[in-house]
Simulated assay, not measured.
Amino acid sequence: MPLKRAYTLSDFILPVFAMCAIVAASNILVQYPFNHFGLGEILTYGAFTYPIAFLVNDLANRSFGPAFARGVVYAGFTIAVILSVWLATPRIAIASGTAFLTAQLLDITVFNRLRQLTWWKAPFASAIFGSLLDTLLFFSIAFAARFARIDAMTGHADSSLAMLVPYFGREIPLWMSLGFGDVMVKMFMAVVMLVPYGAILAIFAPTIYLANRNSR
């Protein structure tokens, strides 16, 4: 049950702006390793910012329904890809756009299937599934050697991260190591994002929060 039964064009402004800002920032930050605590080869700064996109998507879905949320995703996708080409590289933009659109639409589908359950289950499950798909698509397209042709076609140097690095007693390509680290942080952030999601729901939609709080 959405918070509002109807929406206007102005309702799209804030969530679309938030989506664009999050994706653009993440596309820049994913190019910088998290060089603390020896995590430079398994984590980037982008892992901390991108999960906020799922929070925005889930709040849009809860507030106005899946059709509105898909509209936010499509608008955010278009603008974010344009910004990504300008702020990052065409390969990053393609990887980001593909991962963003696919993962966010999956998030909407999962959320909508679970929206009548306890308030935290839908956003948590949708963020987990969306994060797994997003990480797989983004890191493989952006950094796996098999997609190096994108750099060549757009006149850029090969940005693949195919060099082997140690990973729990074996060696794997750096992009896979970063992807594993990324998805672990995204899962952690999926839990953290439940705090603002629950708070916003409790403040602005207490009837829905209380109605769903104890359901199975």
Rank of each mutant, 00 (worst) to 15 (best):
P66F: 14
R5V: 11
I203R: 08
A75H: 04
L161H: 07
I42H: 10
I94E: 10
S131Y: 11
V183T: 10
N214R: 13
A122I: 10
I79G: 11
I22G: 12
A53W: 01
F188Q: 10
V185I: 01
L55F: 02
L164E: 14
V72L: 01
F100K: 00
M153P: 05
I108P: 00
L132R: 12
A75R: 04
L101T: 14
L87R: 04
I200A: 07
A202T: 09
H156S: 14
G130D: 05
P2G: 00
N214Y: 12
A144T: 13
V85Y: 08
N57K: 10
P173L: 00
F168K: 12
A144Q: 03
T135F: 03
V30R: 00
Q31H: 09
S126D: 02
S215P: 09
W175S: 02
Y32R: 08
A25K: 05
T98H: 09
S10H: 06
F143P: 13
A47F: 00
V195W: 12
L106H: 08
G97T: 04
A95P: 08
L14Y: 12
H156I: 12
F180P: 10
M163C: 11
S215I: 13
M193T: 09
M163H: 08
S84F: 06
V110D: 05
P173C: 03
L29K: 11
A152P: 14
T109H: 14
W119R: 05
I94D: 07
A24K: 08
A69C: 14
A47W: 00
G65V: 00
F168C: 15
F48Y: 06
G130F: 05
G71P: 09
T154L: 01
L137F: 08
Y74D: 12
G179S: 09
A152Q: 13
W175A: 00
V185K: 05
L55S: 05
M193D: 09
D107T: 13
N57W: 07
L201I: 04
S10K: 11
T118P: 04
L43V: 01
R146P: 14
D58H: 08
V192I: 13
F143A: 01
H156Q: 12
S215H: 11
S84V: 09
F180S: 09
F77D: 03
V73Y: 08
A125V: 15
F77N: 10
R216Q: 13
